[in-house]
């Protein structure tokens, strides 16, 4: 089995890790990542939660040191990019982002190393988009940070049930903080006086408030896209929402949050097998 890990999952792990506990466990896994994924981590690792709970400057050095562990895992043979033309057609996908590059690497390793691939990503749209192809072509499958934490727990003696619950709880906290901050900002948003006749802005604000209150994150993300596509029309909302661009980029789903909580419960009520 070959593990490939995406930027959002690795950023999550870096953020919730304590004293390199997770990183050391992760080192035991046969995992690789694409160069572009590493670059995405480098670019975004400090941006996450900047709005809600920014990481203290003194912690930046620690994370930079941790990035060195990941640099060693960059898959250096770039022959997998030869599959670009064929795969962009097969997957009907035009973006050249980290998820797509990881897909190319998955197909490449499966084809030439004859190994099944397990790709970890928390990016819900990427999961929906690529999982059917991995399954249909018998390449492998996709899992997320929760599954990765359970895997690390199961394969490491020093990883206790308490540790698993703690890290899952930290993972929930990372997303919940952003959702809570976004909800508060939306609920407290007052239409500027010079925009009181901007009906579309008023309606958009109402829809965003209703969707976040029902925790319909997919709908919130889609409304956010509409706002970014019409910056002029929704200017005051755009200026406020742009602070959460990294949260929207992660495209987290409500199901993922529910999954984290469910697995915190399972850790006690339905323990995961450990030899």
């Amino acid at each position: 089995m070959q593990y490939i890990i995406d930027a959002c999952t690795l950023i999550n792990l870096l953020h919730i890790d304590e004293d390199e506990f997770l990183l050391k466990k992760l080192q035991k896994l046969e995992f690789v990542l694409c160069k572009v994924v590493y670059d995405e981590i480098n670019k975004n690792v400090f941006k996450k939660l900047q709005k809600t709970i920014p990481y203290p400057i003194e912690m930046h050095k620690d994370i930079e040191i941790k990035l060195n562990y990941l640099r060693e895992r960059i898959y250096s043979d770039e022959s997998y990019k030869d599959l670009d033309e064929a795969l962009s057609k097969l997957l009907n996908y035009s973006k050249k982002n980290g998820e797509y590059q990881s897909m190319m690497l998955s197909f490449y390793l499966n084809t030439f190393n004859k190994t099944r691939v397990l790709f970890f990503t928390d990016d819900s749209p990427a999961k929906k988009e690529f999982a059917p192809y991995l399954e249909y072509h018998k390449i492998g499958y996709i899992e997320d940070s929760v599954d990765l934490l359970i895997t690390l727990y199961r394969h490491n003696d020093g990883f206790t049930t308490g540790d698993l619950k703690r890290f899952l709880s930290l993972l929930y906290h990372e997303y919940a903080c952003e959702i809570s901050a976004l909800e508060k900002v939306l609920q407290n948003f007052e239409i500027p006086r010079n925009e009181i006749r901007n009906r579309e802005l008023i309606i958009m604000l109402g829809s965003l408030k209703q969707s976040i209150n029902k925790l319909e994150l997919g709908k919130v993300a889609s409304l956010y896209s509409q706002v970014t596509e019409n910056k002029k029309k929704y200017s005051p909302l755009f200026d406020m929402l742009i602070q959460f661009s990294d949260f929207f980029r992660s495209e987290i789903s409500s199901d993922f949050l529910a999954k984290i909580n469910q697995n915190i419960e399972f850790a006690d009520s339905k323990p995961f097998y450990k030899f």
């Binding site: 619950k165 703690r166 709880s169 930290l170 929930y172 906290h173 919940a176 903080c177 809570s180 915190i264």
Partner: peptide, 13 residues
């Protein structure tokens, strides 16, 4: 104020 945010803290916190 905003005590509801206890729900988004980690279990430990």
């Amino acid at each position: 104020d905003e005590f509801e945010d206890i729900a988004i803290l980690t279990k430990v916190n």
